Computed example of a mutant assay.
Amino acid sequence: MKTVASAEFVRQFGTYQRQVQREEIAVTSYGKVVGFYVSAEDGELLRQVKAARQAYHPAELAEDMWADIDAAAPSDQARALDRLMDD
């Protein structure tokens, strides 16, 4: 991953706009990373991952989510771990 100072990033934006298609760019200010410049594809992927990991307060859960929770069962691997913990 390339790291670039914010002033340089602004001056050479066109260069970094092309480069971001190959790798992410960390943008710094006074030596600290303040953000990342990523391709549109990577940005969309990040948005999808964040949306899939949304946390809900129990009061916000839709009825179908409650049904999924009620129907959920531990995997065989989780049951085996439970048996190990019981010993």
Rank of each mutant, 00 (worst) to 15 (best):
K2D: 14
T3Q: 14
T3N: 08
A5W: 03
S6W: 13
S6D: 07
E8F: 00
V10I: 15
R11T: 04
F13R: 08
T15D: 08
T15V: 10
Q17S: 13
Q17N: 13
V20I: 12
Q21G: 05
Q21D: 06
R22Q: 14
R22V: 08
E24Q: 09
E24T: 06
I25V: 15
I25T: 10
I25P: 02
S29Q: 15
S29W: 15
Y30T: 11
V33G: 01
V34G: 04
G35R: 04
G35K: 03
G35M: 06
F36H: 09
F36A: 01
V38H: 00
A40S: 14
E41D: 08
D42V: 07
D42Y: 03
E44N: 13
E44K: 12
L45R: 15
R47K: 13
V49S: 01
A51R: 15
A52R: 11
Q54T: 15
Q54E: 15
Y56S: 10
A59D: 12
A59T: 07
L61G: 10
E63P: 01
E63R: 07
E63Y: 09
D64Y: 11
W66M: 09
D68G: 11
A71I: 02
A73P: 00
P74L: 10
P74Q: 02
P74H: 02
A80P: 00
D82R: 09
R83F: 05
L84C: 01
L84T: 03
L84M: 08
D86M: 04
D86G: 00
